[in-house]
Design a protein around this nucleic acid. Structure first.
Lengths: 386, 386
DNA sequence: TTGTATGCGTTATCAC
DNA sequence: GTGATAACGCATACAA
């Protein structure tokens, strides 16, 4: 059975010369395009297959000499362990799936890069699942199951039914910037509601009274939470309810939203809060270049996310930054903990970070002397809830 | 041996009731956290394991009734084939690696999204390998070999030694926007040199004479080709050699480059060509907001890539767009062809696309009546070279 | 520490 | 069309 691994030449020799055997094997490999296996290495090194296997494991007990011989043979043969075979027996693929809704969100690349790096540092790789338009999650999930990934980080909308399937399959899951009330699930989020509140507080303190809000996509938890926080805080402060118009989280939505708000109010509002920076920039450009509105003198515009362009001189946007690197790190850390410790899913870890206020220059703001809302602006420290 | 798959209860029954068997199995699974295998499904469906396997293959010959019974049992048990086991025998993981240099390039997300989608349509998934700063490619490659990916798309710098290793391992490879002269390798590129030439032609036709160039990263083939094309064309037209300053392909480099060029020339040039849009935007912002230079009246600024912000009202940048979706599709197509047909690597496929000129409003341009360079501007049709 | 034997879950082969 | 059986390449329990 395993004899098929050995060719006749090397079989006849009782203790084959290392070099010759290596050459013979290389020839065989070149001819048959067969993969180099641990058996080949074992043969060349003159040890057993299990010895070779042990040499490629972390805390295995192998003698110095064996290790040296095996490594030499492995180098000679260009041997690399086969992860598929390994994962079959260890039940660990060292692959995590990242589900990401491909809404043109400019900070997803940052998230992806950070996640990839953080996972790489933990010996895992990212298998990418881009969800075109939040559609057929079913099919994508069934693919996820097939690939035997060790866990999933989801930055896309999952129904509680989907999440239940994760539980049934005991598949570690961390939601990124999404929450689900119905199910106990690990999450890493930014407190977008608090961010919305903070923004309104700062704007209200500077005298803004009539607000417009350009909402994000309907199914975006992030955008909804931001809007909710803003509206909530406006009500608390006794300010008139804002004019809320829908948006698609893209550049054109900013301009369209601005026009819609002005049309609905019959006037330019004091401030417009946009569900994302890209919309804020669209709003800003429309106000300045098309409507001739002086921002921030006549109108304050604020966004969320602190994407790279928001910091460019032409914009210098008032916005709030999510601490992406730390959030990505937290997600990677949490997922790996669940994978390794079999962390009990009964007590979900909900790691919440707070957004950092970026003053920018597109909103009239008062300098801050004391904390207004009770939240800690500026520093985005992780806050453990429950 | 395989008896370990069957528990005693169901073993004793000659033809177990489907429902009961399913329940029994579910219980076993819940207790032991054992995976559902094709044997379990076979048992419940009352067929052999091979039959189950065939039901999950494309062109297998299975009778209607068998298929129905198997699928019902599979649904009952939540059975999903194990891709690791499958790939072990088929030598096909249905995973392709994408190597991508994580330079903050705003159009990489677009590339990644397109690739992921194109691959998904071909039944393959993307395993992501972000290379922090073009460093230790060795280690990353050894990971790539481990994961038994079916092929690799590399949008990062690979030495010819690395590429030789792909050949040795017979690992399908498609380079994206990179070329290597020394080795026969499949590539999908945009003709950046031609793009540089085209840009200079258009600017020269409009009367620009004194050029500045802000180069991209030293090791970036793309930026180098653009610069080369531009310089080449300037020489052909008998214009004075441009002042070339280095850049990092980021926003600050644009401003720094502008200052450096002005300082080196002792004057504001007629036009500045930037190796990327982000630098062009940095240059533009610095010119307008810091130096009070009127763009495009006093100075023309042009970039490359047509990233999303280049189209925003505040910029409306003169630039050239790579046909990313089609390039990604070509890369996916080519790689899959190599994977499936065992496409002979001796005749490398080099698919070249041409960039589309975006007039924008940051450069003074003459309207085009006839083609200047001989290339076809506007439409980016694939051009087969060799 | 080392070698032997076995199993991980699937596909492939070949009789039937 | 269907079922037994042998791989695929590795890790691991167990004996030595």
């Amino acid at each position: 059975m395993r004899a098929s691994h050995l060719n006749n030449e090397t079989m006849t020799k009782p203790k084959p010369c290392v070099e010759a055997a290596a050459l013979a094997h290389k020839a065989v490999i070149a001819r048959e395009a067969r993969r180099v296996t641990s058996y080949d290495v074992a043969l060349v090194a003159g040890v057993s297959q299990s010895a070779v296997s042990r040499c490629f494991q972390a805390g295995a007990s192998v003698s110095e000499t064996t290790l040296a011989r095996v490594m030499k043979a492995a180098g000679l043969l260009d041997y690399i362990p086969n992860a598929a075979a390994r994962s079959l027996i260890t039940r660990r693929s060292n692959i995590v799936a990242v589900l990401i809704a491909s809404q043109a969100n400019l900070h997803y690349p940052e998230l992806l890069g950070e996640l990839s790096q953080q996972m790489g540092a933990r010996g895992k790789r990212v298998l990418l699942f881009m969800l075109p338009r939040e559609t057929d999650v079913e099919r994508v999930l069934s693919e996820v199951w097939q690939y035997q990934v060790d866990g999933v980080i989801a930055a896309a909308h999952l129904s509680s039914g989907h999440i239940a399937e994760f539980e049934r399959r005991q598949m570690p899951l961390v939601l990124f910037n999404r929450t689900v009330r119905e199910r106990p699930v690990h999450t890493v989020t930014c407190d977008h509601r608090e961010a919305g509140r903070m923004l309104v507080s700062r704007l209200a303190a500077a005298g803004h009274r009539r607000f417009g809000i350009i909402a994000g996509l309907e199914d975006s938890t992030v955008a909804n939470e931001r809007r909710r926080g803003a509206c909530e805080r406006l009500a608390e402060l006794g300010l008139p309810p804002p004019v809320v118009v829908p948006g698609q989280s893209d550049y054109p939505s900013g301009a369209a939203g601005l026009r819609a708000i002005i049309s609905a109010m019959g006037a330019v509002p004091d401030a417009i809060i946009c569900g994302s920076d890209v919309m804020a920039i669209g709003c800003l450009d429309c106000a300045r270049h098309e409507l001739g509105i002086d921002v921030p003198r006549q109108l304050s515009v604020a966004g969320f996310d602190a994407v790279e362009p928001s910091n460019w001189l032409s914009y210098n946007l008032t916005t709030l930054r999510q601490p992406m690197p730390r959030m990505a790190q937290a997600a990677a850390e949490l997922l790996c903990a669940v994978i390794d410790n079999n962390h009990p899913a009964a007590t979900p870890d909900r790691r919440v970070f707070s957004a950092q206020f970026i003053e920018g220059a597109t909103a009239r703001l008062e300098p801050v002397f004391s904390t207004i809302t009770g939240a800690t602006p500026g520093l985005a420290a992780p806050v453990a809830i429950m």
